[in-house]
Design a protein around this nucleic acid. Structure first.
Lengths: 106, 106
DNA sequence: TTGACATACATAGAGCATCTAGGTATAATG
DNA sequence: CATTATACCTAGATGCTCTATGTATGTCAA
């Protein structure tokens, strides 16, 4: 298809980061919670996506250590990331609307 | 993700065939029209999908020749195909709802 | 105190849906 | 008569996501 489906995982991650900075493991939990268990992302899916987003400068990362001694990588969405998210959201709406029209038997 | 995205192309094709039998080329045109040019499927995408659906007995095919002499393969959705379509539609709604919730910043 | 489970990061390789690019053949159109 | 539209087809590449692992530490129950 000409207008391909927007890459869902990266869009969802960027959408979560729009609200506040988050670390990987937390993103997985939040996605599960906010989607009411529809999105149970695996670490093997998320971490490569986060590294990709960082490489494209859609997010930045900082390392932090909790009082307990755990190391976490916190991700923040960039200006560029916000623009890309906006674009992906538009594509999603277009795609979703089209699917709905077909299913409805327009 | 645990609940993966429903295979969109086959779902859309089955949805179109729900109304009436159609041949390949026609499916491409109808998808384009009904989606308002969002889905511009390529033949290289559609034909293998149709063959797969036929193999799984979700559709049946018959060959027909027009007065003009053109050969067409008309596809009809089967009972099994209707059940699978129903299932895919449900999955789509679940998926779509979840994405919307995340984008809304639930 | 040890075994199990949760937290938190990571990578390599497989799987699968779709796309790109090519092919065949006939009808219509300018 | 050459180009475009119709109508079918396949092989191979691409790219996203998953499976399967691996490392390391913290917590909690038996």
């Amino acid at each position: 298809m000409a207008k391909k489906e927007p890459a869902s995982v990266s869009m969802l991650v960027l959408a979560l980061l729009k609200g506040r900075e988050m670390y990987g493991y937390q993103i997985i939990e939040e996605l599960d919670k906010r989607s009411e268990h529809v999105f149970q992302m695996k670490e093997g899916t998320l971490y490569p996506v986060l590294h990709g987003l960082e490489k494209e400068r859609l997010v930045t990362a900082r390392e932090a250590v909790t009082e307990k001694g755990r190391t976490r990588r916190y991700y923040t969405i960039t200006e560029k990331g916000l623009r890309v998210l906006d674009e992906k959201e538009k594509e999603w709406r277009t795609f979703s609307t089209a699917v709905t029209a077909i299913l409805a038997g327009a």
